[in-house]
Write a protein that binds this DNA or RNA. Structure first.
Length: 269
DNA sequence: CGCACCCCCTGCCGGC
DNA sequence: TGCCGGCAGGGGGTGC
């Protein structure tokens, strides 16, 4: 679920946490994508959260001892910011208690998420990431360079977090539709203007999605329990068999790299 | 190098 | 009504 827009929406909803100290951490279920090291995690008790950042799909809490607390939400993860005591609910795995009687409750039914604390330089996941899709470093010329070097389908390039961080299946499909490019097009055959269109479409889609509170397909909610509504604006994602909003043709579904692609065969070439 | 295919895990939906 | 297969926003690994 959480791609860049959803993680950004979560980040914004947790803003009240900045400046607070971590006073306790309780781990009920450590079997996430990588086992949660409760002892290591609890070494951050007493630290102050001095900032809340995001890179790609990773949420990063900066601690006063200069370490970082890294969260990734996999397919089904969320974090709720609650006030007062909290009784463990189904699929709640970790509670992070802050001063001011606040707490983060990490819930992740599929347990593909990640929770880790350490120094930024030794965070293996972060070091492999390309520039964040909404950062100034992610430019059209940079994306053009990446497409030139790759014979893969352009959608697979967009999904490659080493090229650009934060794009997942929904927004890759949506951006390719806006740019009029088929997901299966060989990346290195795209023209410079086509890549520039794609770059612009991608950033516009991500910004629109953030403004809409993200996409709530099954049950995505932000830290305050609010749903997003960008799913109401999907132009192609999960619209197989439905009419193209631009030409009235029929949206098709195909599978690339094990993921569903949705596109309009008349509008995308 | 790139992809097809597997894994991790739970939940939901459609077909029978 | 109930069961079963397929599929789902993530990432990682293997072997061809």
């Amino acid at each position: 679920m959480p791609e860049l827009p959803e993680v950004e929406v979560i980040r914004q909803s947790l803003a009240d946490s900045v400046g607070r100290h971590i006073v306790d951490i309780e781990v009920r279920e450590s079997r996430l994508r990588k086992p949660v090291d409760a002892m290591r995690l609890r070494s951050s008790i007493g630290q102050q959260i001095v900032g809340l950042d995001r890179k790609g799909k990773y949420l990063i809490a900066r601690l006063s001892d200069h370490r970082i607390l890294v969260l990734h939400f996999g397919m089904s993860g969320t974090v709720r910011l609650v006030k007062g005591a909290w009784a463990w609910d189904r699929h709640d795995h970790v509670q992070l208690v802050l001063d001011g009687d606040l707490r983060w409750v990490l819930n992740d039914p599929r347990r593909f998420g990640l929770l880790w604390v350490g120094s930024e330089s030794e965070a293996p996941e972060l070091s492999r990431l390309g520039p964040d899709a909404l950062s100034a470093e992610f430019t059209a010329p940079m994306l053009f360079g990446a497409t030139r070097r790759s014979k893969r389908a352009v959608k697979n390039v967009l999904l490659d977090q080493r090229v650009v961080a934060g794009v997942g299946n929904i927004y890759a499909n949506e951006a390719l539709f806006l740019a009029g490019i088929r997901p299966s097009r060989a990346a290195h055959r795209l023209s410079r203007p086509a890549v520039a269109r794609l770059h612009e479409a991608l950033r516009a889609t991500l910004r629109e999605a953030i403004a809409a509170g993200g996409s709530s397909i099954a049950d995505f909610r932000d830290g305050r329990g609010r749903t997003g509504y960008f799913q109401l604006q999907f132009r192609v994602y999960d619209r197989c068999g439905e009419p193209c909003l631009q030409c009235g043709g029929t949206i098709r579904r195909a599978v690339h790299a094990g993921r569903s692609s949705f596109y309009c065969p008349r509008c995308q070439h």
